[in-house]
Design a protein around this nucleic acid. Structure first.
Lengths: 128, 128, 128, 128
DNA sequence: GTGGTCTAGACCACC
DNA sequence: GTGGTCTAGACCACG
């Protein structure tokens, strides 16, 4: 199985973090259904051309968040999460991003009007 | 002179980065006028209770960006930046933050409608 | 790996600057191919008998110029720079030095003839 | 008396050094004849809009080089230097600049041919 | 193992 | 007084 995850060499974000964000999104969005068996650590590491240790960290982190579940000797599965809970998490991810946007805007003293204008323009091309 | 800069011990962001972001914002927003003499590195270090070297790094980085100008034996000054250029930088900072928001939303497959709803709610409390 | 860099205690030039100039030259000249893994900051520091921080500064500065690329936990690599761009940079380095020469000559009112004579003499021994 | 000296705020060169280089050139080139009374420290400082301490340093340095001569209570004069000696110094100033050029060229592995080409081009516009 | 950050403290150059 | 450089040494994050 091949996960639709891409890592950027250019980005300053640490490898493990780039992967976590994308895998988390796949689960929260429902693209990966509950119970799905993820690729093994070694397999994913080889797919993404990164260290096994990095993938291990990703799986551990997401397991700690309750999104994944590891069964000894079988592999790592997507946990069963209520649809409502998934919606909640989705909103919380987006809300966090919004907060960061507002912080940045506030720091450079961007007026509400300016901010709305810039947002409107960008939102036009938003095609999820 | 006392710069309105606050640093958070909790934040995972490195010290120097927190300070850079805020000082950059003060300049771009025009709160600090061109030609303003900034506090000496030693003074600011003592104000923010951090090492002289950390402040030195902040000033150097911002000088490399062209926002500051330091003269040895004299002090560090805010560079003269065109108002239009400031506006541009302001918008580019905000647009970057917007891009990150849209990326996050897209990843969790947030619909345009949902996103607009969440934005609308948060924007109500935006008071720059 | 051992970089052919020599530092002079006599020179008034700061340590970090001496190293930067030489490493930059190695890259621009193509002596170090794109993708080459440089020695770790600790290793180079020990080779050149200077502080780790000094090397760190060198690598950071050259990274800011786009000549190097560092990946945390991995190491520091020579960036891929177009051959034409390298030629350009080479010429720009030399042209800058020529400008400084002409300025100096002009200041002491050295005639074109004198200058050419002195140049001719020195150029005889130029063996790159 | 007004010396034709200009200082650049942009330059990274220290103030005292910029002034020294120019004043030295005025003397070596013969633009300032032996015996000429230079402006007082305070006067020159006010002309160049810099600190008295900076000019004091310039005069001291050039006096140490034997180019100037200070008489208590009267002022600072241009020393009498043999014409041949002046020529020598002129050449030594220029030769030093040439050496720096060659070093830079060598570092980036500029071939003799390339160097000569760049030099020829620049020399065309040399009008002392 | 790698680089990233931060500290305290020193000494120097400049104005 | 200012900034500029450099040190030794520590601790953390990443792979």
């Amino acid at each position: 199985m091949r996960l639709p995850i891409a890592i950027s060499e250019q980005s300053a974000e640490p490898l493990y973090y780039q992967i976590e964000v994308q895998l988390r999104a796949l689960i929260i969005s429902g693209s990966l259904q509950a119970g799905t068996l993820l690729p093994s650590i070694r397999e994913l590491a080889s797919q993404l051309k990164c260290s096994v240790i990095t993938i291990k960290r990703v799986y551990s982190d997401l397991e700690a968040e309750g999104l994944l579940r590891t069964k000894q000797g079988t592999g790592t599965y997507v946990s069963h999460v209520e649809k409502e809970s998934r919606e909640e998490q989705k909103h919380s991810v987006v809300n966090e991003a919004i907060d960061q946007l507002l912080e940045a805007a506030e720091r450079v003293q961007c007026t509400k009007q300016e901010l709305e204008m810039l947002l409107k323009e960008k939102l036009q091309h938003y095609e999820p």
